[in-house]
C-alpha cells in the first residue's frame, strides 16, 4: 500500500496513453517535454526559489524567536511552546483562507502575499525545531566560554550557534520539503497568476487529465527534493565531523 502507488507513478511517468492496438507505450517523451519547454522549467525554478527564500526567512525570523523562548523561565517556556503549537492545530486551509481575507485589499503583489502565507504556515516548525536543540544545550557551556575570555557575542557565535545547527537542519527539512510542493497556498493567496510545480501537477491530474505528464512532473519534483535533502544531511554530517 505504500510502495505500490509509488511504482505506479513511475510507470505512468515513463509511458503514454497509446492507441487501441498498443494500450501503453514506454517512453521518455514526458521528461523531454518538460525540459524542452521553457515555461515548465521556469515554474520549477520559481518553486525552488519560493521554497529557498521561505526557508531563509523562516530561519532569520525563527532563530531569534527560538533563542528568546529558550531564555525564558521554564514555566514561560512551556507556555510559549504551547502558544506556537496552538495555531498549527487549526486546519491549514482555514488559516490560509483567513489570510486571503486579511490581504484581500492590501497593496501587496500576489507574490508577496504568497510569501506571507508560506512563512506563516511554516515558521512554527522552524521555531520549534531550533528551540528544541537550544533547550537541550547545557547553559554552563556559555559560562565556560565566558570564563575562557569570550564576550557574549563570541560565545554565541562559537558555542550556541554551532550547537543549534542540528535544529536548523531539521527545521530546513520541515520547511523546505513541503514548501517546494505546496499548491493551495499559492492558489488561494496568489490567485491564478502565481503558478508553482504543485499547481502544475494539480492541473494535469484534475483539470487536463494527462496523468502521464503529471506523473513525470511529480517524479522530477520528488527527485529534486531527495537530492536537496541528501545534501542538507551531508552538510550536517560534515559539520559533525569537524
Amino acid at each position: 500500500m505504500i510502495i505500490l502507488p509509488m511504482l505506479i507513478i513511475v510507470f505512468y511517468a515513463f509511458s503514454t496513453q497509446g492507441n487501441s492496438l498498443i494500450p501503453v507505450k514506454l517512453t521518455l517523451d514526458n521528461f523531454a517535454r518538460f525540459f524542452s519547454d521553457s515555461i515548465f522549467v521556469e515554474v520549477l525554478l520559481r518553486s525552488l526559489k519560493l521554497a529557498i527564500i521561505t526557508t531563509i526567512i523562516c530561519i532569520l525570523i525563527g532563530y531569534p524567536a527560538a533563542y528568546f523562548i529558550a531564555k525564558l523561565s521554564p514555566d514561560n517556556q512551556s507556555i510559549a511552546v504551547l502558544l506556537v503549537t496552538l495555531p498549527q492545530l487549526i486546519n491549514m486551509l482555514v488559516r490560509t483562507y483567513a489570510w486571503r481575507g486579511i490581504l484581500l485589499e492590501s497593496p501587496f503583489s500576489p507574490e508577496v502575499k504568497v510569501y506571507i502565507g508560506m512563512v506563516y504556515n511554516f515558521l512554527p516548525f522552524m521555531i520549534l525545531q531550533i528551540y528544541t536543540s537550544l533547550s537541550k544545550m547545557d547553559p554552563s557551556l556559555i559560562s565556560a566560554a565566558n570564563d575562557l575570555g569570550c564576550d557574549n557575542r563570541m560565545a554565541f557565535i562559537k558555542v550556541t550557534l554551532p550547537l543549534s545547527v542540528p535544529g536548523i537542519i531539521s527545521g530546513i527539512t520541515l520547511v523546505f520539503l513541503p514548501a517546494v510542493s505546496s499548491f493551495f497556498i499559492p492558489k488561494l493567496l496568489g490567485g491564478g497568476s502565481y503558478v508553482l510545480v504543485g499547481n502544475l501537477i494539480e492541473n494535469y491530474f484534475v483539470t487536463t487529465g494527462d496523468w502521464n505528464f503529471g506523473s513525470a512532473i511529480s517524479l522530477i519534483m520528488a527527485v529534486i527534493i531527495l537530492i536537496s535533502m541528501y545534501f542538507t544531511r551531508k552538510f550536517d554530517y560534515d559539520k559533525e565531523a569537524i
Binding site: 500500500m1 499548491f183 506523473s215 520528488a222 527534493i225
Partner: peptide, 23 residues
Amino acid sequence: VNNLPMLNPDIVTAIGFMLFFST
C-alpha cells in the same frame, strides 16, 4: 519503507493513491 511517505511530498503520495485506486 515507513519513512517514504514522510520524505515524499504530500502531493506525490496523494497522486500515488489516486493512480493506485484507478489502476
